[in-house]
């Protein structure tokens, strides 16, 4: 089964789900994200679900649990690109995705987080991080 890539850019892990997610794959992704957080000490994970045409209670549970688990490891998970129809369907089912922060797209997600990071970073590290985000460091493709 093909792997969902986890890219690392500076302190940010970027996960883009581009295939239909079945249950086992969702659980494997959770495992992979947590291991990657441990390995890299990333402070933020963005999970892009723009391609997901449905999020049912199982996928919803896995996503919300991943966010809560990551939080215990001091990492924030931002869910990116949830489709309008998916959002409405989740709410209609009565599901609430506890512990999840959202953003409209990755750029917006990074902006939201950029503000928070800026607050705790000194100007030097900020400019350093911005250069990294500009892409000087080659992205590191998921190997686990």
């Amino acid at each position: 089964m093909e792997q969902i890539p986890i890219l690392k850019i500076g302190p940010v892990l970027i996960v883009t789900i581009q295939t239909e997610l079945h249950d086992r794959k969702a659980e494997e992704l959770q495992e992979a994200i947590l291991r990657r957080i441990q390995k890299t000490g990333a402070s933020v994970v963005t999970v892009d679900i723009t391609a997901l045409e449905i999020v049912d209670s199982f996928i919803g549970r896995v996503l919300s649990e991943t966010a809560r688990m990551a939080k215990i490891m001091d990492t924030r998970v931002v869910l990116v690109g949830m489709r309008p129809a998916v959002t409405i369907t989740l709410l209609e089912m009565g599901l609430e995705l506890e512990g999840i922060d959202s953003a409209i797209d990755i750029e917006d997600g990074l902006k939201k987080l950029g503000f928070e990071l800026r607050k705790i970073e000194s100007p030097e590290t900020r400019s350093e991080r911005e250069t990294m985000l500009a892409g000087e460091e080659a992205p590191d493709y998921g190997d686990d």
Binding site: L79, V80, T87, I88, L90, L91, D101, D105
Partner: peptide, 12 residues
Amino acid sequence: IRMSSAVKLMGG
């Protein structure tokens, strides 16, 4: 409130 939760889920 539901409308607001939906907007939040999408990141707004």
